[in-house]
Design a protein around this nucleic acid. Structure first.
Length: 575
RNA sequence: CUCUCGGUAGCUCAGCUGGUAGAGCAAUUGACUCUUAAUCAAUGGGUCACAGGUUCGAAUCCUGUCCGGGAGACCA
């Protein structure tokens, strides 16, 4: 007997055995063919019709109401829930009532997956239900499912513990239907984007995740090692430089949904792995890209909700094109009253001090402007706004502005006070690009540990000539957060990163390890129940106290096993 | 990494200023042929996250550790 299982888990394991004893396989191998889904029936079954007279469907038991010889069961499939009406004499037409009395009533539990056939009807209370003719166990659940009940729009005992939800997302998905909806919408967003891009002739591509130079962004990478080549490799922090190589290679429009990895802090908008859509289009500039972005986001909103207004928190975000545009210097002027557009590094540092922002000597002009914007402006932009024309120092991959010296042709799209997209007219002058990289190296020497590495192969590609190109990166996770009204990135990732649970050691120690120490097999479960996880812990115990505890447990649990003598216990505790 | 709040039955939670744990749902047994948070009766279920300490006595007080949330720091 496995004492470490909870009472309910033990009951279910016993039921499992009883099913086997009755000749019923609780985990049958063969297909179970269905011809309907719950939601299909609920939407199509008209009150006065005789459709769906022979349906077959399958799902998980979510709740049961047993009234003697008749019962109501709610099952849930991938599409929704429906009520079953199960009558003893209908599923057991003869004298043999075991299927109902024993299998259904006693051996089936909430959480089990069953298949049923029957006909659809309306109950006296007017609920569309299935009158079951046949019932089959498809998968026995041996772990009790948290029970969430609902009535008149109110939910009772919903599991809200974030740790539970994120670690056991499979349970979260079963019991919280709204969670499923978020992820369905996530896929919809991705599909709408694909269609939007493909319909314009874009080509979806794959580029390396393992890179020997982590380029295209400034962030600390995850590092790993390739044994055969004996070189370090990095998980990509961006795929930008590879997509641009493909533009050099002659593709006019490429895109990739790129899983990127950054070895940095985690919070409600950062997960170590996340998804960015990047796309690059030859012969276009950042103005064109702003229009594309507006069109795309508007399409997503309309595709999900049929309108451009999307609720988020206590506000509504309008994705109706066009979006506002403001230069980063104007934004800073607007929110601080200070015109920094003509300032050099020293003057900027003074401004930052005046505004009580912390600076240090590793920060160049670009970082200081970034700091001012990030601290004083960013959070003001709730409605979609393009922040444009950044200083050249903070944009090493961006083309110099066609008419404004010291600036580059870049925009970031801010929504709800957060950056959603980052785009530029791409720098395609190889000489300029080399100089920009070299400036990055200087920053690194000054102590900026996130300045970019030089990718010489990328420079070589540019030297062959890259057409004028517009490029963008859009944070898909954050976009999905906006589109599904979720405050945390963890709620739009199926399996957000978590510290591992520490339970492994309990499972690694087998009963044999205890037996090897001279402990009788029948006492091993008791020892575990008493809290000893390893034989070493038993060895270290006080024999008198151990004997007392074990004998106490034996009595408490009414175990019919031979009692222990002190000498025996003393023997375990010695080597 | 810092501050802060939390971890009690399968789930949701109560447990006050220390006296060895309670409720609802779930479970078990029984009753019940249209219920729907089904109902009624009885029953069982807990290393109070973990490890120390203070105390005659700790879920409760103190210290440390682990895990999580929130806010910051770092970072797009």
């Amino acid at each position: 007997m496995a004492l470490e299982l909870s009472e309910q888990e033990q009951f279910r394991r016993n039921s499992l055995q009883e099913l086997f004893n009755l000749g019923i396989n609780p985990y049958p191998a063969e297909s179970y063919l269905i011809n309907a889904t719950t939601s299909e029936i609920l939407t199509n079954f008209p009150a006065d019709n005789t459709r769906y007279q022979e349906v077959s469907l399958a799902g998980r038991i979510m709740t049961r109401r047993i009234m003697g010889a008749a019962s109501f069961v709610d099952i849930q499939d991938s599409a929704g829930r429906i009520q079953l009406y199960i009558k003893r004499d209908d599923i057991c037409p003869g004298d043999e009532k075991t299927l109902y009395n024993t299998v259904f009533k006693r051996l089936m539990d909430i959480g089990d997956i069953i298949g049923v056939t029957g006909f659809v009807f309306n109950t006296q209370m007017g609920e569309i239900s299935i009158h079951v003719k046949e019932l089959k166990m498809l998968s026995k659940s041996v772990k009790p499912l948290p029970i969430v009940k609902e009535a008149e729009g109110q939910t009772f005992d919903a599991v809200t513990d974030p740790e539970f939800k994120y670690r056991q997302r499979y349970v979260d998905l079963i019991i919280n239907p709204a969670v499923k909806d978020v992820f369905v919408k996530r896929t919809k967003v991705v599909n709408i984007i694909r269609e939007f891009l493909n319909s314009q002739g874009a080509l979806e591509v794959d580029t390396p995740v393992l890179q020997s130079i982590p380029g295209g962004a400034t962030a600390r990478p995850f590092i790993t090692h390739h044994n055969a080549l004996d070189i370090p490799l990095y998980l990509r922090i961006a795929n930008e430089l590879y997509l641009k190589r493909l533009i050099v290679g002659g593709f006019d429009w490429v895109y990739e949904f790129s899983r990127d990895f950054r070895n940095e802090g985690m919070d409600r908008t950062h997960n170590p792995e996340f998804t960015i859509l990047e796309f690059y289009v030859a012969y276009r500039d950042y103005f064109w890209m702003m229009e594309q972005t507006e069109q795309m986001l508007q399409k997503i909103a309309v595709g999900l909700y049929g309108k451009t207004d999307v609720p988020f928190g206590d506000t509504t975000i309008s994705f109706k094109a066009p979006f506002n545009r403001i230069s980063i210097y104007d934004a800073i002027k607007e929110h601080t009253g200070i015109d920094v557009s003509a300032m050099d590094e020293a003057q900027l540092r003074i401004v930052c001090r005046q505004l009580e922002l912390e600076t240090d000597n590793t920060m160049g002009k670009g970082k200081l402007v970034d700091l001012l914007f990030g601290e004083k402006c960013e959070h003001h932009y709730i409605q979609p706004t393009f922040i444009i024309d950044y200083p050249v120092e903070m944009s090493p991959l961006t083309k110099k502005h066609r008419s404004k010296p010291g600036l580059v042709e870049r925009f970031e799209l801010m929504i709800n006070g957060k950056e959603i997209a980052n785009a530029y007219s791409e720098l395609n002058d190889p000489i300029d690009q080399r100089e920009r990289f070299e400036y990055q190296v200087k920053l690194m020497e000054r102590g900026d540990n996130e300045a970019m590495f030089i990718d010489y192969d990328f420079l070589r590609a540019l030297e062959y000539g890259m057409p004028p190109t517009a490029g963008i990166g859009i944070g898909i996770d954050r976009l999905v957060m906006l589109m599904t009204n979720q405050a945390s990135i963890q709620d739009v990732l199926f399996f957000p990163q978590m510290r591992p649970e520490k339970k492994a050691i309990v499972n690694l120690v087998t009963d044999d390890d205890f037996i090897a120490q001279g402990i009788p097999a029948e006492w091993v479960p008791v020892i575990r129940k008493a809290g000893f996880k390893t034989p070493e812990e038993v060895k270290a115990a006080n024999p008198n106290k151990l004997l007392n505890d074990l004998s106490g447990l034996r009595k408490k649990l009414k175990l019919e096993i031979t009692s222990l003598k002190l000498e025996e216990v003393q023997a375990w505790c010695k080597d």
